[in-house]
Amino acid sequence: MAPEPNKTQPTDADVDAFLAAVDHPVRRRDALRLVELMTRVTGEQPRLWGPSIVGFGTYHYAYSSGRQGDAIAAGFSPRKAATTVYLSDGVEAHADLLAGLGPHTSSVSCVYIKDLDKVDLGVLEEAVRRSYATVTAEGFGDVG
């Protein structure tokens, strides 16, 4: 079963201005690299969701209870302690790949990376590619 979608909503805020204002120089550098990577992988342009999530594309989810909405199909957030990369279909679906990523921690749908220079970007790109393909496939968001 897919993890609970992030309930953050898209905004019209300027992504470039948001990224330029990131204080931590490594997080700012990594954010710019992730914009390039995720734009290439998804074919989508970045959009700010809430105050701090850069999202690429959306998927629609619907529960049997009637609750439904839209969530980011791929994205990241440059946080103080680490950059959070969102794998919307859940980290567990990518355990095989993430074993070779390099230094990171994770939770249900988040991968926390302190420095992109210390991880295998090919592994990260493949995980994002797989996750995006899964959540944008027809029928994924019907989570029952």
Rank of each mutant, 00 (worst) to 15 (best):
G141E: 06
N6Y: 10
D30I: 01
A20I: 01
L32N: 05
E36H: 03
P25E: 07
V85L: 03
P10R: 07
F76P: 03
H60T: 15
S109E: 10
T84M: 13
L121V: 13
V22M: 01
G57L: 08
V119P: 04
T84F: 03
G102T: 06
T134D: 13
G141T: 13
T84G: 06
N6A: 13
T58M: 10
V91R: 08
W49A: 03
S88D: 08
D70V: 11
Y86K: 02
D14F: 00
P78F: 00
D70K: 13
K80C: 03
A17L: 00
G102A: 10
G102Y: 04
L19S: 00
G50M: 08
T39S: 15
A74E: 09
V111F: 08
T83A: 06
C110D: 08
T83V: 15
N6V: 14
D117P: 06
W49I: 01
V123R: 09
T8M: 12
V119F: 11
R27P: 05
G50F: 08
Y112M: 14
A99I: 08
K7Y: 07
L19A: 00
H104V: 10
S107G: 15
D142S: 13
K114Q: 15
A93K: 14
I72M: 14
P51W: 05
A20T: 02
G55R: 04
R79S: 03
K7C: 04
H94V: 04
T11M: 02
